[in-house]
């Protein structure tokens, strides 16, 4: 028994060495972002050796070319608005549908209707949605936010109704006896109790929307509004063959989500595991 608890050092070393597969691409991007085009020789060292001087000039230029702060602002706006709306609307919908399901068949049907939306690939919605949002004046950030709220509804409603099964009905009944309405009971009693699920929903929705390219690409095309990933796509021609400038821009695009990950790593890993397992 004692033997089993001993640290497996061989495996530890193998796994540490294995992190090269994660770090190498990032290291390469980082190094290239600091170099000058003249330092990019045609061998491995040309790309991977340290730069002769560490200058932030590429980053400054990349920020200017891609209008970094505005793209970042758009990405933040879209992601944060989506998360807030998703938590409010999806949790209350999950509550109404989840509790309703126990009493009326109609809610069960609605539950299945919404959850089956998980199978619908964006490809089939894409073309009609572009027409539809344009007609409704939603070919903009608001439209993208609205679409995300709809796209993440199946998963989030399922997560919330699933979580609700763990919250005893007796709690609500006690509030009714005290004269509270269903509405106030929800906000005062149930909503706070679903906090762990709010975190999971926020993280899964955030990871999905922050990195998404396809939705903003087709919905906001021609408006000149960029999200952070979209800016990388739209400024490819301006980077030209200046890889150093391009990589500085990529690094800038990766930094916000990396920072978020470093701060919330534990919650993110839990969120991803919970989301998949409960879903």
């Amino acid at each position: 028994m004692k033997e089993e608890k001993r640290t497996n050092w061989v495996l530890t070393v193998v796994l540490i060495l294995g992190t090269i597969t994660v770090f190498f691409p990032l290291y390469m991007a980082f190094i290239i972002a600091f170099k000058q085009p003249s330092e990019m020789t045609n061998d491995v060292a040309g790309a991977l050796a340290f730069p002769s001087t560490w200058s932030f000039e590429n980053f400054r230029q990349a920020m200017e070319v891609t209008d970094f702060w505005r793209s970042l602002g758009n990405s933040l706006l879209i992601t944060i608005a989506t998360i807030v709306i998703a938590i409010v609307i999806h949790s209350i919908a999950g509550y109404a549908i989840g509790r309703g399901m126990a009493e009326r068949k109609g809610f069960k049907f609605i539950y299945l209707y919404i959850v089956s939306g998980m199978f619908v690939p964006f490809a089939i919605l894409m073309m009609p949605l572009v027409k539809q949002t344009a007609q409704m004046g939603l070919g903009n950030r608001l439209g993208v936010i609205l679409l995300y709220v709809v796209f993440y509804m199946p998963m989030n409603v399922m997560l919330y109704t699933g979580y609700l099964k763990n919250i005893p009905l007796a709690l609500e009944e006690a509030a009714y006896i005290d004269g509270a309405t269903t509405w106030t009971t929800y906000w005062k009693v149930i909503f706070p109790m679903m906090s762990p699920m709010h975190a999971t929903v926020a993280i899964l929705t955030a990871l999905g929307t922050w990195n998404d390219v396809m939705t903003p690409l087709v919905i906001m095309s021609g408006t000149g509004i960029n999200t952070l990933p979209l800016a990388q796509l739209n400024f490819q021609t301006q980077f030209g063959t200046n890889y150093n400038l391009a990589f500085a821009s990529y690094i800038l695009a990766l930094i916000p989500i990396l920072l978020f990950y470093i701060v919330c790593q534990k919650q993110i890993l839990n969120g991803v595991a919970n989301g998949a397992v409960k879903g």
Partner: peptide, 18 residues
């Protein structure tokens, strides 16, 4: 565990460029 999860949080587009 934290390090091995990093590839997933990074966007497919930028990773593709790299």
């Amino acid at each position: 565990r934290g390090i091995y999860f990093v590839p997933n949080i990074l966007g497919g587009l930028v990773i593709g460029y790299i």
